[in-house]
Computed example of a mutant assay.
Amino acid sequence: MPAPLTLLVDNGSLEPAATLGLRELASQLAAKLGEPVEPVSLLHSSAIAPERIGGTPAEILFPALEKRVATGIHDFLVLPLFFGPSGALTGYLPENLARLKAKHPALNVRLAPHLHRADDNRLARIIADHVRAEIVSPNDRVALVDHGSPVAAVTEVRNALAQQVAALLGNTVAAIAPCSMERRPAPEYDFCKPLLTDLLATAPWNESRVIVAMQFLLPGRHAGREGDVAEICRAAEIKHAQLRTQMTRLVAEHPLLIQILADRWGAAR
């Protein structure tokens, strides 16, 4: 039987840099696996004007699946570019796959595991490497920031990564704290605390040099050099004269990510 077609799937973004980054990852992974890997997004990216992304329109997952089923392809391996078990993977994706399978009974989709595993510290090694590149003093502090999720299990991934990064960096920095870029306001989402804004306003963080370790995969509205995290850092520096921040590179900029993706792909084969 032919091998399933691999689809590398991110959440999606309206920012061209995110789609271009996803395509580059798919190309690198295909070269490593020796099999085609096609980049698609769950949502949003198909609204980007094609001329902003090299002339080829971005695709979103369910129209992409229907298009390929119409050509006779029925077996797929979905490789999620997600740190943890977000609602997109545990709710939106299986619910819509069930509806699509009801329409196309021959459809067969395998879902590979998300990126983080408790017994695999390679994501933490990526973040630690990026932090080391920015350290200028053992007095530097590290704020490991993710997007912020309404799913507690995703925030647990953030917290676990912070613990692993702390173990890897040891006494080369003064402190490491997990935080989120944003959160829903209701009390039941307090597990996202602290926000990056609040952490940078708290002593001694607000009078330190803080390395903002980016737990983001690809550039976009949040993680780009002019994105939301950068704006939070600039605003905090204006409020606190002694504060200095330095953002790290993104996770997808490290070669270990391709190895992790290849292993998650292999686990679903």
Rank of each mutant, 00 (worst) to 15 (best):
D119C: 08
G266Q: 15
A98T: 11
G220D: 01
V69Y: 03
A112G: 05
E207W: 08
L243E: 01
E156G: 11
H130R: 14
Q242F: 14
E134S: 13
A153F: 07
A213I: 12
L81H: 01
R269Y: 10
A49W: 00
N121Q: 11
L29G: 04
D129E: 11
V136W: 01
V151S: 05
V40Y: 02
L123H: 05
P255S: 11
L8V: 08
A102Q: 12
P185T: 09
A186S: 11
P178T: 09
V69D: 00
Q163A: 15
P36L: 09
C233P: 02
V131C: 05
V229Q: 03
Q215M: 15
R23G: 06
L97I: 10
L5H: 10
P36F: 06
R110Q: 09
L144F: 11
A47P: 00
P63N: 06
R158V: 10
F82K: 01
R244E: 06
V40N: 02
F216K: 01
H222S: 04
R183A: 14
A143P: 08
T155Q: 07
L115G: 01
L20M: 13
L7Q: 03
G72Y: 09
A223N: 05
A177L: 10
I211R: 10
N139V: 12
V40H: 00
D75L: 06
V9L: 14
R244D: 02
D228C: 08
I232F: 03
A143C: 12
R68V: 12
P63H: 03
V37N: 03
L81V: 09
V154F: 01
A268T: 07
V229D: 01
G12P: 00
W265R: 10
S137E: 04
L169Q: 02
F191R: 07
G227C: 11
I232C: 04
L100E: 02
P80G: 08
Q259C: 07
P178V: 13
P113Y: 02
L168D: 03
Q164D: 14
H114M: 10
H254S: 04
T56C: 08
N121W: 03
A201M: 09
A64C: 14
A236S: 13
P105V: 13
L200K: 02
I176C: 07
R23V: 01
L111R: 10
Q259H: 13
P204F: 13
V251S: 02
P80R: 09
G55P: 02
L161E: 05
A223Q: 03
D190W: 04
E188C: 07
R184I: 13
T155C: 10
R264I: 10
L42H: 03
